[in-house]
Computed example of a mutant assay.
Amino acid sequence: MRKMLLALATAAALPAMPAVAHVTIDPAQATPHAYVRAALRVPHGCGTAATTRLTVRLPDGVTGARPMPKPGWALIIAPREATGAPGGHGSAPEVATITWESGRLPNEHYDEFVLRFRAPNEPGATLWFAVRQECEGGAVTDWSEIPAEGRRISDYPHPAASMRLVPR
Score class of each variant (00 low, 15 high):
residue 60 D to W: 02
residue 33 H to F: 00
residue 47 G to C: 07
residue 85 A to Q: 14
residue 114 V to H: 12
residue 71 P to Y: 06
residue 115 L to E: 09
residue 75 L to R: 10
residue 34 A to Q: 10
residue 41 R to W: 13
residue 64 G to Y: 01
residue 128 W to F: 14
residue 35 Y to M: 11
residue 106 P to W: 07
residue 125 A to H: 03
residue 97 T to Y: 03
residue 46 C to G: 06
residue 91 S to W: 09
residue 119 A to H: 07
residue 59 P to V: 06
residue 49 A to Y: 02
residue 81 E to N: 11
residue 81 E to I: 05
residue 101 E to S: 08
residue 126 T to G: 06
residue 66 R to T: 11
residue 92 A to E: 15
residue 76 I to A: 13
residue 21 A to I: 00
residue 47 G to A: 02
residue 42 V to G: 03
residue 86 P to Y: 10
residue 84 G to C: 08
residue 42 V to S: 03
residue 40 L to D: 04
residue 100 W to M: 08
residue 100 W to K: 01
residue 128 W to E: 12
residue 101 E to G: 01
residue 96 A to C: 04
residue 41 R to H: 15
residue 26 D to G: 12
residue 42 V to M: 04
residue 115 L to Y: 11
residue 54 L to F: 01
residue 97 T to S: 00
residue 56 V to K: 00
residue 71 P to T: 10
residue 116 R to Y: 13
residue 45 G to V: 00
residue 65 A to L: 00
residue 104 R to Q: 12
residue 120 P to K: 04
residue 30 A to D: 04
residue 41 R to E: 14
residue 84 G to Q: 05
residue 80 R to C: 01
residue 122 E to S: 06
residue 123 P to G: 11
residue 79 P to F: 03
residue 90 G to W: 09
residue 42 V to Q: 02
residue 120 P to D: 03
residue 122 E to M: 08
residue 120 P to R: 06
residue 31 T to K: 11
residue 21 A to Q: 15
residue 42 V to P: 02
residue 20 V to L: 15
residue 67 P to L: 09
residue 105 L to Y: 05
residue 20 V to G: 15
residue 32 P to L: 06
residue 99 T to Y: 02
residue 29 Q to D: 13
residue 127 L to N: 00
residue 98 I to N: 02
residue 106 P to Q: 09
residue 124 G to I: 12
residue 107 N to M: 08
residue 59 P to M: 06
residue 117 F to H: 07
residue 87 G to S: 09
residue 113 F to G: 12
residue 67 P to W: 02
residue 46 C to L: 01
residue 51 T to W: 08
residue 65 A to C: 09
residue 77 I to N: 05
residue 120 P to M: 01
residue 81 E to K: 10
residue 86 P to K: 11
residue 100 W to C: 08
residue 130 A to R: 10
residue 110 Y to C: 11
residue 55 T to Y: 03
residue 104 R to V: 00
residue 20 V to F: 15
residue 111 D to C: 00
residue 83 T to F: 08
residue 72 G to F: 09
residue 25 I to F: 08
residue 110 Y to M: 14
residue 39 A to N: 13
residue 116 R to I: 11
residue 79 P to D: 07
residue 109 H to Y: 15
residue 116 R to D: 13
residue 67 P to H: 02
